[in-house]
């Protein structure tokens, strides 16, 4: 929660700087976003690679059907966003699919969508995916009570492996921790692939 608030503050600070500050040309060039994104992807990759042993031991000990969970979460997110776009006049189904495929991984997906579709859709994606994390953090106990113990994992999407993991464990029980981490890892890897495939 603290993390996503800080992120929201950084974003708002950036917006205010863009609105009111007299920025040097090097900052206003859109290429800067892309290079910072490359750096982020690289560091995130190192983190996943360093954790590979843990990730793969989870896979080896689990039934193949465990993959059904992240697949179902992705399918549901894409379908749900596509259905929601029917109520929004100027969001195409394809753009809604791209936003839905962010799965809560706002830093990656929104910058990605900004690069490929511009700031308007990028900002919708950012807000939508930050909201997803905030909703999970705030409502995980309610979601677990109303929709079953897998619901917080589904709502968390890609964040189930890190920021929302503590609240998932508290709401769903610690026997769901491995499933949450597994689902989060699979979805974290899936997000950049899905967004690319949907928007290219």
């Amino acid at each position: 929660m603290k993390g996503s608030l800080t992120i929201l503050c950084c974003f708002i600070a950036g917006v205010l700087a863009g609105l009111f500050a007299d920025l040097p040309a090097v900052v206003t060039e859109s290429d800067l976003t892309l290079w910072v994104l490359y750096a982020l992807i690289f560091f995130v990759g190192i983190g996943i690679g360093g954790d590979a042993a843990a990730s793969f031991s989870v896979l080896k000990k689990s039934n193949i059907r465990i993959f059904l969970i992240p697949v179902a979460i992705t399918f549901g997110s894409l379908t749900g966003a596509a259905v929601a776009s029917l109520f929004l006049a100027d969001i195409s189904i394809r753009d809604a699919l791209a936003i839905g495929s962010g799965l809560g991984y706002y830093s990656l997906s929104s910058i990605y969508i900004t690069e490929m579709r511009g700031e308007v859709l990028g900002t919708i994606s950012l807000l939508s995916n930050i909201l997803r994390e905030i909703v999970t953090l705030l409502a995980a106990p309610l979601l677990a009570a109303w929709f079953g113990r897998t619901a917080p994992i589904a709502a968390a999407g890609a964040t189930a492996m890190d920021t929302t993991l503590p609240i998932i464990i508290r709401s769903s029980g610690k026997e769901f921790a491995i499933l949450a981490i597994f689902s989060g890892i699979v979805l974290t890897i899936a997000v950049p692939i899905l967004v690319t495939v949907i928007l290219s």
Binding site: C10, A13, V15, A17, S107, T114
Partner: peptide, 9 residues
């Protein structure tokens, strides 16, 4: 990244 993204927004 979010700061830079905020600027472009």
């Amino acid at each position: 990244l979010l700061f830079v993204l905020g600027i472009s927004v």
